[in-house]
Computed example of a mutant assay.
Amino acid sequence: MSRSDEKPAALVPFAVPQFTLTDYSKFFAAGALCCTVTHGGMTPIDVVKTRIQIDSEYKKLNLLTGARHVIRTEGASGLLTGFGPTAVGYLVQGGAKFAGYEFWKKQFTQIAGDQESAVKYRTAIYLGASSVAEFFADILLTPLEATRIRLVSQHGYANGLVSGFTRLAREEGMRGLYAGFLPILCKQIPYAIGQFTVNEFCHELAFRSMSEETRRSLSGGSKFAIALGSGVVAGFAAAILSQPADTLLSQINKGHGPTGSMPHRLAVLAREAGFKGLFAGLGPRMVMTAGLVAGQFLMYGAIKDALSAPPGLEIHKEDK
């Protein structure tokens, strides 16, 4: 048979899992718990990081000396400022983000149509799924994040989550609650991209050289090491990608910058801060984010197992 008569190889349909509403509720619960525990636990580091970004007294301090300054001036309880809105905000955001990522990754994989196309365009699938999931999750997070930053940046603003949220809503309404929506999108979407996409590729790199049999027989310690290493690298990527917008978000929620549209305010603040200013506090935030992301993925997997949730969809490229 001549080459022109040869039939092209049939495309292999992708075996996409058909998740149920119960499955997504388990993904939501696992994401909510892993995010609220890790973000809540990192509150002291986040307090110091935020102060370094917005308070001139902290500009030359590092994580350790900044924590000492908080304790000296406000007492040890000062390191837990904003714990309430952090815990609640990332409870709802984490659930929506992780369940949303599973949902949108499945949708975009189905749009690809076959296994070869899905693997070829897996980066676009990861980017799209993480971005769309984060967008909807941030609608839930933004008012609580605005409350947290007010509590941290304005000493005496309120006693906690309820009083802070109520005061902000009463005095500034929806405009104040969502003043940081655009910068939080600019922060959280790159964060989610780094978190999920880099984690996917780290796992792919680890698994690519293994046979299917070796992978199935991995010990618990090996699985833990791969998940931990992937999470740490993904955390570093998430911190670096989202740091400039994180700094601007802190400034916006403190009321800094000119009046006008949000893009104009962000542009002015970015020019005033400069490259160095936009990355102020990156060191402490990288430490915090590496711990956050690694902890989240480890806990997410453990909670999913405890809830008997199905494994997520994998579209990793295999070595030939």
Rank of each mutant, 00 (worst) to 15 (best):
M1L: 07
M1R: 10
P8I: 11
P8K: 14
P8W: 00
A9G: 02
V12E: 15
P13N: 10
P13G: 08
F14D: 06
F14G: 01
V16Q: 08
P17I: 07
L21H: 07
T22G: 12
S25D: 00
K26D: 10
F28N: 03
A29F: 13
A30K: 03
A30I: 05
G31P: 10
L33V: 14
C34Q: 15
C35M: 11
H39M: 15
G40L: 08
M42T: 12
D46L: 14
V48C: 08
V48W: 04
T50D: 14
R51M: 12
I52K: 05
Y58R: 09
Y58D: 00
Y58A: 03
K59F: 14
K60G: 08
K60S: 12
L63S: 08
L64N: 02
R68N: 12
T73C: 01
T73E: 09
G75A: 04
S77M: 06
L79C: 05
T86M: 15
A87I: 14
V88W: 06
V88D: 03
G89A: 08
L91Q: 01
L91A: 15
V92D: 00
G95D: 01
G100P: 13
Y101D: 05
Y101H: 13
F103S: 05
W104D: 01
K106C: 09
F108Y: 12
T109A: 15
D114A: 15
Q115S: 13
S117Y: 00
K120N: 11
S130T: 12
S130W: 02
S130Q: 08
V132R: 03
V132T: 12
F135E: 02
A137V: 03
I139C: 11
T142F: 05
P143M: 06
A146D: 02
R150Y: 00
L151I: 07
Y157T: 05
Y157R: 11
L161C: 03
V162K: 10
S163Y: 00
S163M: 01
F165Y: 15
L168T: 04
R175T: 12
G176D: 13
Y178A: 04
G180Q: 09
L182Q: 06
K187M: 14
Q188H: 07
I189P: 02
A192Q: 13
A192R: 02
G194V: 06
Q195E: 15
E200Y: 09
F201Y: 15
F207D: 02
R208F: 12
S211F: 07
S211V: 04
E212V: 05
E213F: 00
G220E: 14
A225Q: 11
A225E: 09
I226P: 02
I226T: 11
G231T: 08
V232F: 08
V233N: 09
A234T: 09
G235K: 12
A239Q: 06
I240Q: 03
I240V: 15
L241V: 02
A245P: 02
A245M: 13
T247I: 02
T247L: 01
S250N: 11
K254F: 00
P258I: 08
P263A: 09
P263L: 07
L266V: 06
A267I: 01
A267P: 00
V268S: 11
K276N: 12
G277E: 01
L278E: 06
G281S: 03
P284A: 07
P284Q: 06
R285K: 11
M286Q: 04
M288H: 14
V293R: 07
A294G: 12
Q296N: 11
I303E: 00
D305K: 13
L307I: 06
S308K: 15
A309P: 09
G312S: 14
E314T: 11
E314L: 04
K317C: 08
K320A: 13
